[in-house]
C-alpha cells in the first residue's frame, strides 16, 4: 500500500454545544478514493471542518504527512451567494492560488499558468472569459474543481459535489473525478448522500453514524457488510460504471 497522507487516531470533534464525532480512527493513503457517507447529523460536515483545520480536535489527533491542511483542494457545498455572482471563470479559478500566496497581495505569472492548466484539464478553458453566473450547474462545478486543483496537487476534498445537478451532469462530474483520481493520481475524499452511485468509483468507504464510526474499509467490503444495505436500495448496484446507471441514480438522488 502507498504512503499515508492523513492519519486520524481516536479523533473526537465537536462544538461548544457538544461532541459531534468520537473514536474516529482511519487512514487515507495517497491515491485513495475515499467516500464519506452517513445520515444527516452524523458529523460529516464536522469531519470536513476538522480535516481542513478549521476545527481543532477535542481529543485524539489528525496527522498530515507531506501535506498541510492548507494544501487540501476543497470543493465546498454550493452557496446561494454564488448563483448570481458577477465573476469571470478565470477570476474564480485563479482565486484557488490564494492560499499559496500567503501575505503577498498579487498573483504571479506562475499562478496564472497554473490556473490556465487546470481550466484546460477540466475542459473549461474556452469559458475563461465567461461569467460564472451564466454557466450551467455542471460547468460551475467543473470551474470550482479547477479552482480546487489550483490549491493542491495531492488531495481533493469534495463536499456533496453533485447536489442540484441533473443526471447527465452528475454522470459527467463523477467521470471527471474518477479520471482525476486514476489518471492524475490525486487522492479524493468525497462526502456524499448518493451512496450507491458514489461507490462505483470509490476504493475506500468511511461510514459515520450518530453513534460514531460505523464502518471503515474497502468499497468491496462495504458492499458485503450489513451496514451498507439500507443505503444501497438503488437498483443500479451491479451495473458498475455504466452511464445509464449513473444517470438513473442521479435522478433518484434529486
Amino acid at each position: 500500500m502507498s504512503a499515508a497522507l492523513i492519519q486520524c487516531e481516536d479523533l473526537a470533534l465537536g462544538y461548544e454545544t457538544g461532541i459531534a464525532i468520537r473514536h474516529l480512527t482511519f487512514t487515507v493513503h495517497a491515491g485513495d478514493y475515499l467516500c464519506l457517507v452517513g445520515e444527516n447529523g452524523s458529523g460529516k460536515s464536522t469531519l470536513v471542518k476538522g480535516l481542513l483545520g478549521l476545527l481543532p480536535p477535542l481529543s485524539g489527533k489528525i496527522q498530515f504527512f507531506g501535506l498541510s491542511p492548507r494544501e487540501i483542494g476543497y470543493l465546498p457545498q454550493q452557496n446561494p451567494v454564488q448563483k448570481d455572482f458577477p465573476a469571470s471563470v478565470q477570476e474564480v479559478v485563479l482565486s484557488g492560488c490564494l492560499g499559496r500566496r500567503g501575505v503577498l497581495p498579487f498573483y504571479t505569472r506562475g499562478d496564472k499558468a497554473r490556473a490556465a492548466e487546470n481550466m484546460e484539464l477540466l475542459g473549461v478553458a474556452g469559458l475563461a472569459r465567461a461569467s460564472y453566473r451564466d454557466l450551467s450547474g455542471g460547468q460551475q462545478q467543473r470551474v470550482l474543481l479547477a479552482r480546487a486543483l489550483c490549491a493542491t496537487s495531492k488531495l481533493l476534498l469534495l463536499d456533496e459535489p453533485v447536489t442540484g445537478l441533473d443526471p447527465l451532469a452528475t454522470a459527467e462530474l463523477y467521470a471527471i473525478i474518477k479520471d482525476l483520481n486514476r489518471a492524475q493520481g490525486i487522492t479524493i475524499i468525497m462526502v456524499s448522500h448518493d451512496v450507491s452511485c458514489a461507490l462505483h468509483d470509490a476504493t475506500m468507504v468511511l461510514h459515520l453514524s450518530d453513534k460514531g464510526m460505523a464502518f471503515f474499509g474497502t468499497a468491496e467490503e462495504y458492499h458485503r457488510s450489513p451496514i451498507s444495505q439500507p443505503f444501497l436500495r438503488c437498483d443500479c448496484v451491479g451495473h458498475h460504471n455504466s452511464h445509464v446507471c449513473d444517470a438513473s441514480c442521479g435522478g433518484k438522488s434529486q
Binding site: 481542513l52 492548507r70 465546498p76 452557496n79 465573476a87 497581495p105 490549491a151
Partner: peptide
Amino acid sequence: FILFYNKIFAITFDESFARATGT
C-alpha cells in the same frame, strides 16, 4: 482595497473555500 483585492474577491465569492486555504 488594492492590496487586498484578491482576498476580498475570494472571501466575497466563497468564504468557506477562502478559509480552507488559510485566508
